[in-house]
Design a protein around this nucleic acid. Structure first.
Lengths: 217, 217
DNA sequence: TAGATTGTTAATCGATTAACAATC
DNA sequence: TAGATTGTTAATCGATTAACAATC
């Protein structure tokens, strides 16, 4: 129910999940929801949900009634920064890069990709998702002129470190890394790996465990 | 140093990061590495890294020498299940679906996508990444025949729940969900959201905080 | 041997859960 | 009012960090 106290990290991590579910409810015209109901649907502990919601909601919930769906949505969006547009430049307009440039949901998450960059001359000069694709040579100039500090790295693993270094040299401060390699960066640069390997491992390990159990009974 | 005790969840989550860095070291011909060195490069606490490695490594590290890179890699791969191939079916051969079907790194992570499915007749019948794309009508039959239990959901949000229900009806037990919506599933079905919204939020919030701090000093 | 480095035990911290009081 | 539901305080649990012993 505050805007002052910092949100616990684990709560923050669960927020996108709540947001998705509340979006669904809002779409169905549901106006209020009890923490218990959210917990049941999302397979979380009831008290955990109450605490999470209390940590972000401005007005809090009301006994007998629960939380107002729209208010919760706004609160979560604010906490996650969806209402604060970040501009980004993407490097590597391959299959994945195209998918990211085309994806329309990013605007809703507060991300605006201004342009893509690629060293392949066949790709440079085209448009993807209504955004220009420029040759790699123009990256630094573009980056400095637009004062963008967020870079999306979608090149193959082999060139990722090299492109990363270039980004850092041009003033990029935070890198969203889709390349499946470890990036070495100076201390003040933020790197967030989009770690598909992790979700995949979590999923397949759980599946394996469940099927082994299933076999036993 | 065990294979018996369960790996703490937080350790498990860090494993893909170690794996990537160790891969890089192995590629450079480095044979042994100290936990301290890993900690420094990955910006983690030294003791945490020691504990993590101790939890997965079969033979453990040796004083003065550190851990053997290759042995660590094998141990982590085993823990994450990379050495255990899971077969999967993908539904939704759009930009993202194509990127996933084309991505060659999955084999290394123990994932084999057998086929893609799409309801667009223009896409069905083609091949992507050397794998067949079949019409949606063939999904259930294919799924049952091949006994595949892992489904990759890469359709737009609007049709995701519907496709999800179909998957569950055909025997899929675990769903890797790339659609940006909440999925409602029966209790025994596993869903792992590939939550790009989260990494993006983490990154842009940290960037914001860092830039605000930077402005003050 | 001395020193680097691992491994372990204990202390701290943060997150989850349980119990219960407050409120509409 | 009674009951559903929130919010809070205390107890438990798990993860991180600190201190130190073990070992090559």
């Amino acid at each position: 129910m505050s805007d002052v106290r910092p949100i616990p990290m684990q709560t923050f991590r669960r927020l996108p999940g709540y947001h998705r579910y509340l979006k669904e409810l809002a779409g169905q015209g549901v106006e209020t929801i009890a923490a218990v109901a959210i917990a049941k649907e999302m397979k979380l502990h009831e008290v955990q949900v109450r605490k999470d919601l209390a940590a972000v909601s401005v007005s809090g919930g009301r006994p007998r009634m629960g939380f107002r769906v729209e208010e919760l949505l706004r609160s979560i969006e604010h906490t996650l920064g969806y209402d604060n547009v970040s501009e980004a430049l993407l490097v590597g307009v391959g299959q994945l890069g195209r998918a990211l440039m085309t994806y329309e949901g990013f605007e809703q998450l507060g991300l605006r990709i201004l342009a893509g960059f690629d060293c392949d001359p066949a790709v440079a000069g085209t448009e993807v998702g209504g955004k220009p694709v420029l040759p790699m040579e123009k990256f630094c100039d573009f980056c400095r002129r637009t004062q963008v500090h967020l870079g999306i790295l979608a090149v193959p693993g082999e060139t990722a470190q090299q492109v990363c270094d270039l980004m850092v040299g041009c003033g990029i401060l935070a890198i969203w890394n889709f390349a499946p390699v470890h990036l070495t960066v100076p201390a003040h640069i933020l790197v967030e790996d989009e770690n598909m390997a992790l979700s995949l491992a979590l999923l397949s390990q759980n599946l394996k465990r469940q099927m082994e159990q299933g076999d036993l009974f």
